[in-house]
Amino acid sequence: MADSTETLLETPLASLHRELGARMVPFAGYAMPVQYPAGIMAEHLATRSGAGLFDVSHMGQAELVGEGAAEALERLTPADVKILKPGRQKYGLLTTESGGVLDDFMVANLGDRLFLVLNASRKDVDCAAIEAVLPAGVRLNRLPDRALVAFQGPGAVAALATIAPDVSAMRFMDVLAVEIAGITTLVSRSGYTGEDGVEISVSAEEAEELARALLALPGAVPAGLGARDSLRLEAGLCLYGNDIDETTSPVEANLVWTIGKRRRTEWNFPGAERVREELDNGPKRLRVGILPEGRQPARGHTPIQVGGEVVGEVTSGGFGPSLNGPCAMGYVAREHAADGTALDLMVRGKASPARVAPTPFFPHRYAR
């Protein structure tokens, strides 16, 4: 969270949030809507049943342009970027020389360039790291004059298709330039809620017009950071700074699937030595899903014990509105990571029983 004395940045939708009655909070240096008058629970459930509109304009957007852009990006990520076909997107990790996670990101192949979406709190770090490895002829263009909104839920694409028919034929992780209500946008069929839906990149000056057009669609509601967090937690998706950071490896984080098959034969990405060692011999700890047995949520930094001994820590936790109960993720020593393992969560000094559980807690509903 940002220091209260710091001047917070605002997204292009700030005045619309206030008009809609949002409660604004500091997040990654921005004033962001945590919830609207309906509340986090209602926004979460409305996204699960219809369509929620989230402002994610605080995220970093950038493009890599020039011959060899994919090869250049692979100097910083174990993802196979070269395999990405035009009009397709993938999730990847930027890694450090010590095998930690510098950030997680999205990369799309737009044919003549790569389009990147980076975390708000890490975008400056990421861009500096990328620029440091670029060869002559490849350049990184930051796109601070663009906004980003996520329109998520089982009704989102059908509703959007009434004003932008092209989106209905898109598959999960497709990316397409689409005109919506007369506005030129870049749409990816992806998101951070576990639901079907889209993320839409748009020029900052047209962002409010786009958001109003989306909110006018049937079943659409504005949703804030609170619902975004509970949705992604139920979906078992990592939040940078909580569940992954420079101390966690892709293997520990259970994100080995982001490492390209070819990259596992080349071992030429930052931190490859640690990743290879952990793949061969197993990591000391693993990220797991956790279901508390009672109604008491366990928040981040809650110690995890087995037989009175601390074996790990909760990294994300809260109440899952779709589960109607608490859920969490955290790291535990590998020998305690099997599904069904009994744990004690030390909530305010008292042991609260829980079990290791598979994620997602709520099924993903992507348009595969």
Rank of each mutant, 00 (worst) to 15 (best):
G87K: 05
I183L: 12
E74Y: 07
D145M: 07
T95K: 06
L225Y: 05
A38C: 13
P165K: 09
G137H: 07
M346F: 12
P283C: 06
M329P: 08
E19N: 07
P250A: 12
R75L: 13
C327W: 02
A227C: 04
A161T: 04
T265M: 14
A169T: 15
I290E: 08
D166H: 08
F172E: 10
E63H: 06
N242W: 09
L76N: 11
A333F: 10
L255D: 04
D339Q: 07
I163P: 00
V314K: 04
G100R: 13
R189G: 03
K350C: 11
E63N: 11
R262I: 10
G282L: 09
R262G: 13
A227G: 06
R228M: 00
R171K: 13
I40N: 03
A28I: 01
D103P: 03
D243Y: 01
L20T: 03
A342Q: 15
K82Q: 15
L225S: 04
A22K: 02
I130E: 05
C238L: 10
P363D: 07
L343D: 13
L225F: 04
P326K: 04
T193A: 13
L286I: 14
G111V: 00
G111E: 01
N281H: 15
G66Y: 06
L13Q: 09
D243M: 03
G308I: 09
A223S: 14
R348P: 04
D174S: 07
V198D: 03
N119P: 14
R18V: 09
F115L: 12
A159M: 00
S98H: 14
D103Y: 11
Q35W: 14
A42T: 15
K85F: 09
Q61S: 10
W267I: 07
P154I: 04
P360I: 05
A223M: 02
P353Q: 11
P12L: 10
S316M: 12
G21V: 07
L110S: 00
F269K: 08
S121H: 11
G50I: 01
P33L: 07
D145F: 08
V101H: 04
E131C: 08
A164E: 04
Q89Y: 01
P135N: 05
D245M: 01
Q305H: 15
E313V: 14
T247M: 10
V81Q: 02
L160M: 08
L114T: 00
T77M: 07
S190Y: 09
I290P: 05
P292W: 10
E293G: 14
V314N: 06
T77N: 11
D339Y: 12
A70F: 02
P135M: 03
G194M: 02
N141F: 02
L210Q: 05
A51T: 00
G197C: 01
S49Y: 03
M329W: 02
A169F: 06
E309A: 15
A70Y: 02
E293L: 13
A108M: 04
D166I: 00
E71V: 12
E199D: 11
L233W: 04
R287S: 03
A136I: 05
R212H: 03
A147G: 15
E179S: 14
V138S: 05
F361I: 06
T359A: 01
